[in-house]
Computed example of a mutant assay.
Amino acid sequence: MVAPPSIVFPPMTVPLDPDLRLNDPADPVAVEATTWFVRLRDQGAGPSDRAAFDAWLQADSAHGTAYADVEALWAGLDGATFPVAVSEPGAGGGLESLRRRTLLSRRAMAAAAALVLTVGVSLPSLATHLATDAQTGVGQSRSLTLADGSLAVLDADSAIAVDIAADRRDVRLLRGRVWVQAAHEARPFRVHVGPAAVRDIGTAFEVSRYGDAGTVAVTEGSVELTLADGPALPLVAGQAARFDRGGAVFAGSAAGTRPAWVPDPTDGQGASPARLRFVDAPLSEVLADLQRHGAGRILVTDAALKRRRITGTVDPAQPRVALNAVLARVDARVDRVGPFVVVRPKSRRGSDEDR
């Protein structure tokens, strides 16, 4: 399969298609409608549930409209599957056993949606929280100095676990993105993410995680990227690589001494505002970054759409405007259902080109 050409858009200058404008945070009625949709499809639903649902419908005409919207959107998913991390009962491996990727059917996704809507937390996120030494929330960033003097800057909705001992310095990226400026000393410094390890060789570098895949971008010095027992891929300042369990490849470049999203304390109040820069990145990664910055819980129903390539710069302080700008270039439409932002192709033409 030949990858489609990268779609390039100028920073924040794309006119917004009215059809792409997102609503403000989820309407409570839409959340209720989504909850009823999930509840009525549970195998344990009975006459009392149906009676309560009928009463809810009759209480307000807006309820029926919202429920019809949920039904119509769900029918349009066409059996799409979505990757989520689930716990594997009885499995060893601690945190990693919780991060096994599983494809859920629409029915299983409904159960997951019910859990999110009712308790607002998932098992993987709870496990990540328990294993975390430092983390950030959606739309937040944080700089911290590690015990060895290294600087770590966490991007939005990111988490790391740190293990610094007499013979090693290990950082595990549990989610999101981190930029590290490693202190120079004899102990090896590594950042672990999914199947990969990035070994510092006197440098500063950025690592991003997307499930069991990720990216590395070197801003100073050099690193070695290794997967399992495979050979090391050397990267020097200005180079970037993309990896998954299948291997690693060079991908784009890393400009400057710091990523665009990392603030420079030496710039004072004249510092440039943070930006998210994408170079030939798949849409799935772009949307994951925007979700971490507050664009909403994003689900993409079309595999070909996820593979579309994006090059451009957006403002993370305006995540929904940025989302609109990106989706306007890939022939996509947005629907909001409860807490979810569902992205679908406007037409099949764009998807067919990617197959």
Rank of each mutant, 00 (worst) to 15 (best):
I7Q: 04
V8H: 15
V8K: 13
F9M: 14
M12N: 15
N23T: 15
D24L: 14
P25V: 01
A30N: 10
V31P: 09
F37Y: 15
Q43D: 14
A45W: 05
P47D: 05
S48V: 15
R50Q: 11
Y67K: 06
D69L: 06
W74S: 13
G79A: 13
T81F: 07
P89M: 11
G90N: 03
G93N: 12
G94Y: 05
E96K: 13
S97N: 08
L98C: 11
R101F: 07
L103N: 10
S105A: 06
A110S: 11
A112M: 07
G120C: 04
S122F: 11
L123R: 12
D133Y: 01
G137F: 04
G139Q: 01
Q140H: 12
A147Y: 04
G149K: 05
L151T: 14
A165P: 06
A166H: 11
D167N: 11
D170L: 08
L173G: 05
L174N: 06
A183T: 13
H184R: 09
V191C: 05
H192T: 08
V193Y: 03
V193N: 00
A196H: 01
V198F: 00
I201H: 05
I201D: 09
I201L: 15
G202L: 01
G202M: 02
R209Y: 01
G211A: 14
G211M: 12
A213W: 00
G221N: 02
P231F: 01
L235D: 01
A237P: 00
F243N: 00
R245F: 01
F250W: 04
G256S: 06
D264M: 12
D264A: 14
D264I: 13
P265W: 09
F278W: 05
V279S: 04
D280F: 00
S284K: 02
E285A: 00
A288M: 05
A288R: 09
A288H: 03
D289Q: 14
R292C: 08
H293L: 11
H293R: 12
L299R: 04
T301H: 08
K306M: 14
R308A: 06
T311V: 05
G312C: 06
T313R: 11
A317W: 06
A317L: 11
P319V: 03
P319S: 02
N324A: 13
A325G: 08
A325T: 10
A328N: 14
D331Y: 07
A332Q: 02
G338V: 09
V342C: 10
V343M: 07
P345D: 13
P345W: 08
R349S: 03
R349M: 08
G350K: 06
E353G: 14
